[in-house]
């Protein structure tokens, strides 16, 4: 398929996932702040912005409204929910012939509606977060039920999975900041739609270590980091089925494979003991893998400028 289309699908996958995950992360924090009367709101919000890669000035007051404006409503920022959905729309628009018209219509309707949804939900951001999660779920469902399992699908899922690894790592980082202590893990699991699954798996009350372990390492839960890494690896394997007897040529695949094995085969105590370092490393590995994918598959997608 055209490199430009592959790139558009990959980014479509990433942006929809980013919008959804950002909605989930904001939802957690919104609720935690409501539930926990002792938390230092300003510190918690600064920490969150930092984890999400947004700079915040020292002097300014930082509360949950600041955070929501920046990470949910700011249309000019590609990391906000509105910005991500808009970027997803642009990418889908450039790849309309390879996505089904149902997907397109859903993206387009979301794009048209999002501004009014956002402004209407300012007093109750939760409603907006729910709506974003639902739109993302419909998009995922439509992709699942209307797209052939060809390369177009693989690029979309690859983008989605890489983004999920990255965002879940960020969610865990934000939770692990000293500000929060050990509370609030139930809310965190709930916001990842992982609470019921966690309960059925462990059949005991939520505890910080187990919850982190579940979101990071569960082999069966589709929003865990491990699951997303495996999915991404599988997409890469299918995109380049040629296999040699020794090792892997594909830099992206090597990077992701290493990231996965480090999670999977490391002693749990070791892993959870220095979780922030591991999460930071995981994010670096994601960036490296994304760079390798772009290098290998998306070269020559920029127009050339000619000199006469």
């Amino acid at each position: 398929m055209l490199t430009r289309l592959a790139e558009s699908l990959y980014w479509f996958g990433r942006y929809v996932e980013r919008a959804e995950d950002t909605a989930r992360i904001l939802d957690v924090h919104y609720h935690l702040l409501l539930e926990d009367p002792w938390v230092d709101e300003s510190a918690a919000c600064r920490a969150l912005l930092e984890v999400m890669g947004v700079e915040c000035g020292e002097a300014d007051t930082c509360d949950i409204d600041t955070v929501t404006r920046a990470l949910a409503y700011d249309a000019s920022y590609g990391g906000s929910i509105v910005g991500s959905m808009s970027a997803a729309w642009h990418n889908a628009r450039g790849a309309r012939e390879v996505i089904s018209s149902e997907i397109w219509e859903c993206v387009n309707a979301t794009h048209i509606e999002i501004a009014s949804r956002a402004s209407a939900s300012v007093p109750q951001p939760h409603k907006f977060f729910i709506w974003v999660k639902e739109r993302a779920a419909i998009l995922a469902g439509l992709a699942d039920s209307t797209m052939s399992r060809d390369d177009a699908w693989r690029y979309l899922v690859l983008g989605r999975s890489l983004e999920r690894v990255d965002m879940t790592a960020r969610l865990l980082s934000s939770r692990h900041q000293a500000v929060w202590g050990d509370g609030g893990w139930t809310t965190t699991l709930r916001c990842c739609s992982a609470y019921e699954s966690y309960l059925r798996t462990y059949q005991r009350a939520v505890d910080a270590t187990l919850a982190a372990q579940f979101l990071l390492l569960d082999r069966l839960f589709p929003r865990s980091v491990l699951w997303a890494l495996r999915t991404a690896e599988q997409c890469l394997a299918e995109l380049d089925p040629s296999s040699s007897r020794v090792g892997f040529d594909d830099v992206a695949r090597r990077t992701l494979g290493r990231a996965r094995t480090e999670l999977e085969f490391r002693a749990l105590d070791d892993l959870l003991g220095s979780l922030p370092d591991h999460l930071a490393q995981l994010q670096n590995q994601c960036t490296a893998a994304a760079g390798a994918v772009a290098d290998r598959y998306f070269r020559h997608t920029r127009p050339l400028e000619w000199t006469a």
């Binding site: 398929m1 055209l2 490199t3 309309r96 390369d151 020559h300 997608t301 920029r302």
Partner: peptide, 19 residues
């Protein structure tokens, strides 16, 4: 559906850049 940047001419033959 291609854009100009997806196309390249080499020795009088037109190609599109795919993955």
């Amino acid at each position: 559906l291609v854009e100009g940047r997806d196309l390249v001419c080499r020795d009088g033959v037109l190609y599109m850049r795919t993955t």
